[in-house]
Design a binder for these strands. Structure first.
Lengths: 219, 219
DNA sequence: AAGTTCCGGAACTCCACAGTACCGTATATA
DNA sequence: TATATACGGTACTGTGGAGTTCCGGAACTT
């Protein structure tokens, strides 16, 4: 959510040497603008978004945006790319010793909110992806792939410890929850809640990997 | 694919009485235009689509479109709505006596092509749905709901004949294949093939309903 | 204090597209 | 043949947004 990472990409270098005092640096402007871009993108989609909206949201002048990015398309590309870095910290991922524990451990309000924001951004980009492979690549890396990657890791660990069969098709199974969440949000326009996600784990994913949940246990 | 059904909606009535000779009727123009609208919509999305593109595709004048629909938005609404009627005939749905047989029986090239076309149209609309509830409603009825509805029917029949447990969560399970297909096409931009769909049935859906596939049987 | 740099903001240009108006034509009725 | 209607096509208007230019001011440097 704090897209400071792409800053290295700011070739204009602006006030780079003026970094001695403890003042807020010029460099934060890039992050503010990218944040504003993502907000507007999530609310209105790419075509509905105007540069003026972004400038107003970031309390910046339109000229400031064009001093840093050559076009609307490049700005959006950077903004989407920086969602990747702002991903859930890979440090505090659950490691409970059971597949179900790990999967359920991922269900936390901040994580759900982060996911919904990303999906709203994605919704505003979908129609462009077919004719913009570069954007499609960036969007995939930043928004689509990470969630499935985490699931895949949990499942691989479950295989390694012998909890589930080694020939489980974890490539497909890791996609189930991202796919169902996307479908529910983008297509059916229903919200995501804990109950839906736990149901997905207990009644779809775990049975599919050969694990049974005994009764309706506490979560 | 032949959207003749919405014709009743054409209040202008045009050359309605001139229906005696065996000439192609004026009424087919509506269908041609709606077809062209869907084609352009699938290729460029709503914002990329212009009225001139549709007119050119339908070999019609722009004025002709505006004689029949008051705005671009209404035209698109009608075009999307008429995808519902052009759905797979409910008459020749499979009824093989087993859940797997019914699900696999749905996997046919025309059905896959129809689904991909619908998803391309949907891709071009997604960003509008949040701020256009009427379009969201129509798109859901025409594109999103039907596929899941068929799956749900298959599963209900499986419950009725005692093939699967009566407390199976068919509401969720019926969404799996539509969700995974949408995710794969819209987000990951990979094509749909028979192998993917059969794998989904055998390694996700059937295990989740408590059915096991013995070996890797012929399909 | 003087100079430099980046800023926010406003006022532009340019273009693409929604929607309208009009025209010459083809067809069908009478 | 005369009349009427819908047609395709073209030229128009109006608007909104991308991208540019310019300016006065703020902040930092020396």
């Amino acid at each position: 959510m704090t897209p400071l990472d792409l800053v290295e990409r700011s070739e204009h270098a602006s006030t780079e040497p003026a970094n001695k005092l403890g003042r807020p640096l010029d460099i934060t402007r890039d992050a503010d603008i990218l944040d504003a871009t993502l907000d507007v993108l999530a609310e209105t989609g790419y075509d509905g978004m105007t540069i003026d909206m972004v400038a107003a949201r970031a309390k910046a002048g339109k000229a400031t945006l064009y001093r840093r990015w050559p076009s609307k398309a490049e700005l959006v590309l950077d903004a989407v790319a920086c969602m990747k870095k702002s991903d859930i910290d890979f440090a505090d991922l659950p490691d409970t010793g059971t597949l179900r524990g790990d999967l359920v451990g991922m269900i936390k309000p901040p994580s759900i909110r982060d996911g919904e924001k990303k999906l709203k951004v994605m919704a505003g980009l979908v129609s462009l992806l077919a004719r913009n492979p570069e954007l499609a690549e960036v969007a995939n890396e930043a928004i689509v792939a990470p969630r499935a990657e985490i699931n895949r890791m949990f499942m691989q660990r479950a295989i390694d410890r012998g909890e589930i069969s080694a020939d489980t098709d974890i490539g497909t199974l890791a996609l189930i929850s991202p796919a169902m969440v996307s479908y529910r949000v983008l297509m059916m326009r229903k919200p995501i809640d804990r109950e839906f996600l736990v149901g997905l784990i207990d009644r779809v994913i775990l049975p599919a990997v050969g694990l049974e949940v005994i009764g309706t246990s506490q979560v």
